[in-house]
Design a protein around this nucleic acid. Structure first.
Length: 492
RNA sequence: GGGCCGUUAGCUCAGAGGGAGAGCACCGGCCUUUUAAGCCGGGUGUCGCUGGUUCGAGUCCAGCACGGCUCACCA
């Protein structure tokens, strides 16, 4: 422990004083009857007369967040993850010694208090303390009570302070937890099996992205942190797990932004005998369910926008969305050379561009940011969808959709390509792209092709970014606000 | 990676060539229903780091570190 500032010295001295007075500095357990939040939930509705009549005794632990000493009486607040509860200490109630010893406590210390509930003159539910127990020392001064911890960097690096001090921060992660719990309930109730597939892949696949590389010493092989679980999940569908889902981390070795963290959490689910139309139905059902259950509404606020989840959501074909928002006429969009040139200007580093990739660039730049309400963009170019079935009506398009909300891609799904010969051809095309310098092209995975050779039934598959979904539900504009420990450069 | 902005007390922030400041927190005193408690007194600091310009740098310049926004890449 390094004690560097005066306030820390004072805290350390108070703590050693407690030791001299025989206080157990590292108690092994605390006998508690309620948490702060439980007291609030159970008794917030009771009036003072009821509290007086019922004589409710509680033993509550918490961190001291405020102290107001007023001579021979002291008010303070104890906090847990989401709530705070006031305590009232009177010398004539607790005795001179215990009252004096309380002055050796600091804001940030963790104690438990025993006493009965009452309401103060101003009506606040409060514990009239009869006894208190020291549980842990806080050796550092806490951030300011009114402004909280504002420094964004400190909030991420010392997330525990953020959670302790800023109630909004804690709320977001409780919401995220509820979201994931409800997602599990949704799929479990539909007869899905939840699985965990490898995070370390010999061949990185299932998405178009650059992987992190690592090495296994005993086997002497290169491994890659997974960029997607997709190929493993479909192997499981081959094996007879007709309804399968996984919620887990993906890793992509790319830039960091308000919408990208190198590791992020993805829900992927696959259901046999379904296609991408079914997946759209299910996506609406899932998000409507989550929103009703967690927020109790279908009208969400996201920054300056209001998002309505009222079904049905808009469906627009990829090419039509491009024509609508990019200002290019359908004729121009069909002019491959012109499209490639235009896209190259928008994404200078991304050369050389194929026609399909160029269309994708145009879509990302000029269409995606303008799609605010939940919108299924369907049938993108087959070329950028090497794992999706082609559309029977238009062989250049994939049976695929992306769900866009608030300008962000939230979900991506398709009718899975089940033809092993076609899959192999698509992989070979991707290899050609790689030879031309596209590091994000899909690697060939012959073991996966072989799995398809055993027969993958018609299958709908989908991925939903949990972090971004949490952003939408929690009204947070930065992905770092919904990831407890976002990746930061280590501080020198 | 590029551009712009930021980094001053434990926290939140002001200060823009010449005495290092405020509020909260902290320390001492008073105060038994307060709640951003109040009253009296006290400033606790490597002004991110390293150089430079200058008689003099928290302030101007350069480099570096970390962060934010944004562009690029991506989901």
């Amino acid at each position: 422990m390094s004690i560097t500032i005066d306030q820390e010295k004072v805290r350390y001295q108070k703590w050693t004083k407690l030791a001299e007075e025989g206080v157990d500095l590292f108690p092994h357990r605390a006998a508690i009857t309620h948490t702060v939040s439980q007291v609030k939930q159970q008794y917030e509705s009771l009036k003072e007369e009821e509290l007086e009549k019922k004589e409710i005794k509680v033993s509550v632990p918490g961190r001291i967040l405020t102290i107001r000493r007023m001579g021979r009486a002291t008010f303070f607040h104890l906090g847990d993850a989401l709530n705070r509860l006031q305590g009232y200490l009177r010398q004539d109630q607790i005795g001179q010694e215990a009252y004096r010893r309380f002055s050796l406590l600091d804001i940030g210390d963790i104690i438990s208090i025993q006493g009965r509930l009452f309401r103060t003159r101003t009506g606040e539910l409060t514990v009239l303390v009869e006894e208190y127990t020291f549980l842990a020392k806080c050796f550092h001064p806490l951030p300011e009570k009114w402004h909280g911890l504002q420094d964004v960097e400190l909030r991420y690096r010392k997330r525990y302070l953020d959670l302790m001090i800023n109630p909004e921060a804690a709320r977001v992660f409780w919401l995220r937890s509820a979201l994931i719990a409800e997602i599990r309930r949704f799929f479990d109730e539909r007869g899905y099996i939840e699985v965990e597939t490898p995070m370390m892949h010999p061949i990185p696949g299932g998405a178009l992205a650059r992987p992190f590389e690592t090495f296994h010493n005993a086997l002497g092989i290169e491994l890659y942190l997974r960029i997607a679980p997709e190929l493993y999940l479909k192997r499981l569908v081959v094996g007879g797990f007709d309804k399968v889902y996984e919620i887990n981390r993906n890793f992509r070795n790319e830039g960091i932004s308000s919408q990208h963290n190198p590791e992020f959490t993805m829900l992927e689910f696959y259901e046999a005998y379904k296609d991408y139309h079914d997946m759209m139905e299910m996506t609406e059902e899932l998000l409507v369910y989550l929103s009703q259950k967690i927020l109790g509404t279908l009208e969400l606020t996201f920054g300056e926008y209001s998002l309505s989840l009222k079904r049905p959501w808009r469906k627009v074909r990829f090419y039509e969305a491009l024509a609508e928002f990019s200002g290019l006429s359908p004729a121009k969009l069909k002019n491959e050379r012109e499209v490639i040139e235009l896209a190259s200007q928008l994404a200078s580093e991304k050369t050389p561009l194929s026609y399909g990739k160029a269309l994708d660039v145009l879509f990302d730049k000029q269409v995606k940011p303008k799609l605010i309400q939940p919108t299924f963009v369907i049938n993108p170019p087959k070329e950028i969808s090497p794992l999706a079935k082609a559309s029977p009506e238009n062989p250049n398009e994939a049976e695929r959709f992306e769900l866009i909300m608030a300008g962000m891609e939230i979900a991506n799904a398709f009718s899975e390509l089940t033809d092993p010969l076609e899959q192999k051809r698509r992989f070979e095309q991707q290899l050609e792209e790689r030879k031309k310098g596209d590091e994000e092209s899909h690697a060939i995975d012959l073991d996966y092709v072989q799995a398809l050779e055993y027969g993958l039934p018609p299958t709908g598959g989908e991925g939903i970014g949990i972090d971004r979904l949490t952003m939408i539900f929690a009204n947070k504009q930065s992905i770092r606000e919904v990831i407890l420990f976002p990746l930061l450069r280590p501080k020198g």
